[in-house]
Design a protein around this nucleic acid. Structure first.
Lengths: 202, 202
DNA sequence: CCTTACTTACTAAACGGTAAGTAAATTATA
DNA sequence: TATAATTTACTTACCGTTTAGTAAGTAAGG
């Protein structure tokens, strides 16, 4: 029996809606309905819509930053980079709302991203930079712009998730091409990891 | 003296706003103001907001599909793939509004993308599939999910553009790390192209 | 009796879209 | 060729709905 407070319930349904519909198309009325309460009840727990949004996204950015840090401390640069990519990918699997929220934030230039999240993101990228630098020093990696590598990892994976409906629509236009079975996301993570590491090796 | 019709002027300013603010936060009133006309004048030229949006995005998708086709017909699979990536990248440079619009469409699962654009996108991906297949047959490329490669190319490049404000914010949190000069976008295209091709080679 | 956790009822503003009118250009007609 | 009719390209004024946010009231628990 999950003993979840009403506040957490609101956050849960808000996350679903922000992920599915985006910030603008999410209405507090709809969230309230999902929670079987009324809209002003949300205002009892949260100052306004933007604050609710923060309550939705900040924990996710904090969690991913923590996991990345935990999983990319030890081993060779290659192994650490592999773990970086896999940790991020696995996080997207266990937090299905995150891909869409993150992809929209990037598309919007992070204009509405709370500072707290940006700080967590910097930590994550700082970790990536340290891995790339170590790999460079050890002459295993070539020198590349770290932010490009970050984008290759995170936007490829998040967009692969959000673009699933697009893939389905596109495959309808591809009658001629053989419709191969869609790889599952674990395979996509592995394939991306291999491609990026191979691309970086000296 | 650029002889541009009022209709084209509306499309121009609409593109600017859709790119900068997204579909929901773009108001017809604001577009009208930019054109020095009134809102109903827009309705004289376009049925509704969605139709105006189509008029903004469809030409871009058609143009990129055409350019890709033109530039990736001849040469070795490696050269064709390089051209695919570079053509896409150069298109983003000459069409600065496109990155944000495209990135948002992907983030939204292309739910509001006109069928016409999806058809153009399918053509583009069809072209990529043919390059990858040829490379596979020639034993130069390993077999990879084409859609993953497509995402690695297009979302990395579009997001690299849209994420520029984010990069600036992040660099403020990175006092300790040396702030290396930001590579220009041509270099990013080259670097991505090399990484992807290297990752795909047998 | 006071705080918690709400509900009902409401306001204000924004925004997509429309109705109706009009000046200027274009075309048809006498 | 002068004039009447029509179309083009708008404007002013407005409507209806949606939605964030608020004021005020209330039932339950400590």
């Amino acid at each position: 029996m999950p003993k979840v407070s009403k506040k957490e319930l609101i956050i849960y349904h808000a996350r679903e809606s922000f992920s599915k519909n985006g910030y603008e198309l999410t209405t507090l009325e709809a969230i309230a309905k999902e929670c079987s309460i009324t809209k002003p009840a949300i205002y009892y727990h949260f100052k306004d819509k933007a604050t609710l949004y923060k309550a939705v996204v900040c924990p996710e950015f904090t969690a991913i930053a923590l996991k990345i840090k935990e999983n990319t401390q030890m081993g060779t640069p290659t192994k650490r980079l592999e773990n970086y990519i896999k940790t991020f990918g696995e996080f997207l699997i266990s937090n299905p709302s995150f891909s869409a929220i993150f992809a929209r934030e990037i598309a919007n230039g992070a204009s509405s991203m709370p500072d707290e999240c940006i700080e967590q993101l910097s930590r994550t990228i700082g970790q990536l930079i340290s891995i790339l630098n170590d790999g460079e020093s050890a002459k295993t990696f070539t020198k590349e712009p770290p932010f490009l590598i970050q984008m290759m990892i995170v936007t490829t994976l998040t967009s692969y998730n959000t673009a699933q409906p697009l893939r389905e629509k596109i495959s309808q236009y591809m009658q001629n091409k053989a419709t191969q079975a869609e790889p599952n996301f674990h395979n996509i993570i592995d394939a991306l990891s291999q491609k990026i590491i191979k691309g970086l090796l000296c």
